[in-house]
Design a protein around this nucleic acid. Structure first.
Lengths: 206, 206
DNA sequence: TGCAAATGTGAGGATTGCTCATATTTAGTG
DNA sequence: CACTAAATATGAGCAATCCTCACATTTGCA
C-alpha cells in the first residue's frame, strides 16, 4: 500500500524517532546543496556527508537521487495548495473570486522569487519523468480548487468547461512564473501582470 | 567568430564533403534513438555505432551530449519560425491577424503531435540550461514576428506593450502544447482550443 | 538479559560521458 | 606522381557518479 503524503517517494518509512530525524537532516542537506548549485550539481555523496550520514543510509530511504527532489517538490506543492485553498475558501461572488485570484498570483510570484530551491526544481532542470507527473498532478489539484470556487460564482455554469479552463489557467500560471524568473526582474513583473489580466478576463467571462 | 545558424553548437565545422555527410548521419542516428527511447536514454556510444562512426568522431564535432540535442532543437525551431513568418506575412488587418494566428496554433499543434523528437526535447526532460536558453530565444523570436504583425493592425499602438504581450502569448502557446500532449488526446485538443480563444481575445483587445 | 527487527556503514560494482595519443585520409603544390 | 600539411578518424581507457550489498550496530520488547 502506498502512502499518499510526501513520504510516498520513500523506499522505507522511518519508524523510529532517530531515523526520522536523520531523514529530515538528509532533506535539509539536499535543500542547502540545491540552493548552492542546483539539483543537477547536487551529489549524493555530498548530501550524505552534510547530513552526517553514510551513503548507504541515504539509499535506505530514498530509492534514487530523483526521489529526494520529488520529496522536496511535493512539500512545496502541498504548501502552495494549502495557500490556494485558503485564499479561495471564502469566495462568495465573482468580484471576490477575481480579487482572491489576483492576490494568489502575487503571493505565488513572491514565493517563486524567494525560494531558490522551488525555482530550481520547477525550472525544467530535471530529467525526471516522475517529476513532470508530480507537476501535472499539482496543476490538476490546484485547478480543482479554482474550479470549485469558479463554479460557485459563474453565470454560465458548464462544469466540465470550467474545470478544464481552471486547469489551463493554473498551468499557464506556473508557466508564466517560470518565464518571469528567466528574464530580468522588471520584464518578469510585467509579464506576470499581463498574465494576471488575461486570466482574470478569462475567469470573469464565464 | 561564432556561426549564427544551427552549427553554432558544433565544436568544429565539417568542411569536407565526407565529414558533412558523417555529421548528418550522426544527427540522423540521434534522431532515431530519441524517437525510440527519448533523449535521456540516448547513449553516445549508440549514436556513434548507428552512425557507423567512432565515438571519437562524434566528439570531434559535438562538444557534449547536449550539443546534439541542441542542434536538433534549433533545426526544429528554425522550421517553426519560418512557418510563423510565412503565416503572418500577408496580414493586413485585425481580422486577418486573428485568422492567421488561429491557423498557426493548429499547425503547430499538429506538428507537436506528429514529431516525437520535438515532443521529447520540449517536454522539459532535459537537464540542460543551454536548452532552456534556446527555448527562450525561440519564444522571443516568435514573439517578435507576432508583434510585428500585431503592431501593424492594432488600434492602441503601444509598441513595448504589444511586444511583451506577443512574447507572453507565444510562450504560453508552447506551454499549452506541452500540457496538451501530457494528457489524453481529447482533453488536449480542448485545452488547445481554450488557449486559442484566450489568445485571440488578448490579441483582438489591443 | 537475549533476540529479532530496524537501522547504519562504506568499499566497490557498473554505467557512461568524454579525452587524447595515434593512425588514416584528403587537398593542394611543384 | 610524390610529398606535405591540414583535416579527419579511431577506440582504449580515464574520471565521475549513481547505487548495491554483505556485514555491523542499535533499538524495541518480552
Amino acid at each position: 500500500m502506498e502512502k499518499t503524503d510526501e513520504t510516498g517517494a520513500l523506499r522505507r518509512a522511518p519508524s523510529q524517532k532517530r531515523s526520522q530525524e536523520r531523514v529530515e537532516r538528509m532533506l535539509q542537506a539536499a535543500t542547502a546543496l540545491i540552493e548552492e548549485g542546483g539539483s543537477d550539481a547536487m551529489r549524493m555523496g555530498e548530501v550524505a556527508e552534510r547530513a552526517g550520514v553514510s551513503i548507504g543510509s541515504l539509499y535506505q530511504y530514498f530509492p534514487d537521487k530523483g526521489a529526494i527532489v520529488r520529496t522536496l517538490a511535493e512539500r512545496y506543492n502541498a504548501e502552495g495548495r494549502a495557500c490556494i485553498a485558503e485564499g479561495l475558501a471564502g469566495v462568495r461572488d465573482m468580484d471576490g473570486l477575481l480579487r482572491a485570484f489576483g492576490g494568489l498570483i502575487d503571493t505565488y510570484y513572491g514565493i517563486f522569487l524567494a525560494e531558490p530551491v522551488m525555482r530550481d526544481i520547477w525550472s525544467g532542470t530535471q530529467a525526471d519523468k516522475a517529476l513532470r507527473d508530480i507537476d501535472l498532478r499539482d496543476s490538476r489539484a490546484n485547478g480543482e480548487l479554482l474550479a470549485e470556487a469558479w463554479q460557485r460564482v459563474a453565470r454560465n455554469n458548464d462544469g466540465d468547461d470550467i474545470r478544464r479552463k481552471a486547469f489551463l489557467v493554473m498551468s499557464l500560471g506556473e508557466a508564466t512564473m517560470r518565464l518571469a524568473i528567466s528574464v530580468e526582474r522588471a520584464e518578469g513583473d510585467a509579464l506576470v501582470a499581463d498574465y494576471k489580466a488575461m486570466a482574470l478576463r478569462e475567469i470573469g467571462n464565464a
